[in-house]
Amino acid sequence: MDKTTTASDAVATLGDGMTIGIGGWGPRRKPMALIREILRSELRDLTVVSYGGADVGMLCASGKVRKLVFAFVSLDFIPLEPYFRKARQGGEIDILEIDEGMMLLGLRAAAMGSPFIPTEVGLGTDVVACNESIKLIESPYDEGKEWVAMPALKLDVALVHVDRADRRGVCQIKGPDHYMDDLFVRAAGRTIVSCDELVETDYFHENPEESRCVFWERSATSSVVHIPFGAHPSSCNPLYGIDVGHFKAYAASAKEEGGWQEYIDEFVSGGEARYLDKVGGESHIKSLPLPVY
């Protein structure tokens, strides 16, 4: 069994109007090389579900997003994501703004094949009042209280980045947190994984700890794309940290007239090999310190 493919072939399987879930969290372990491949494509009208960082900002800046499902979009040390702000303040995108935990429940509901999960989260707030698609229900067991029926967030495709994978789709996340990546994978009809390292299956046999850092079974992985440093400029702890300098330059570009086009021209259009070269190469990325929170 061999699920390996290229980023361009993987992205070519996506279609206009699809709902795409993106793993990672803010500026941490985002499948950025796959995002850049989408930026190079003609894809449009996407519904994006994400604990958002520059993945969301870039897709918004490129006009790829019709609707965004989010709880936040932030680069952590740059709290407000500049291109997401522009898109929102320009009224350019539809949104479903929900609590971080509601997103978890929506993904879990989709993974379970359940239409919704009841929760208290969202009661009394504008995430319910401003979102007609989120309904309130009463418990069939206990009269009186109302509950938020968090609808399943079914994804056509999930995009996640992992430290390493084998050709059959066994994926390992060695960093301190796998975030909700397992839920994104399970909520999706298909999953495209990018990996920093492509390994032989033997790798996982070396000690039990290696397979303890595998968070879904390989049947949930559809495609494996080997892209060293594929999370850059986000981190892939413990392999490399966040490229703060690159994010600052990216954020600064949003303040310039034509800044996004310049960013695209400099970093995205020329393909991934040129990207790595432009951002300082392998040695630069390997030297990025792990974030301290």
Partner: peptide, 26 residues
């Protein structure tokens, strides 16, 4: 912590609600 101004096209978009709804009811 979400947005200032009109919700459909905010004057200032901030972080988003993050975990505030869940924190506040829990």
């Amino acid at each position: 912590i979400s947005a200032i101004g009109d919700y459909d096209q905010p004057k200032i978009q901030m972080l988003g609600v993050r975990g505030f709804p869940g924190n506040s009811i829990s």
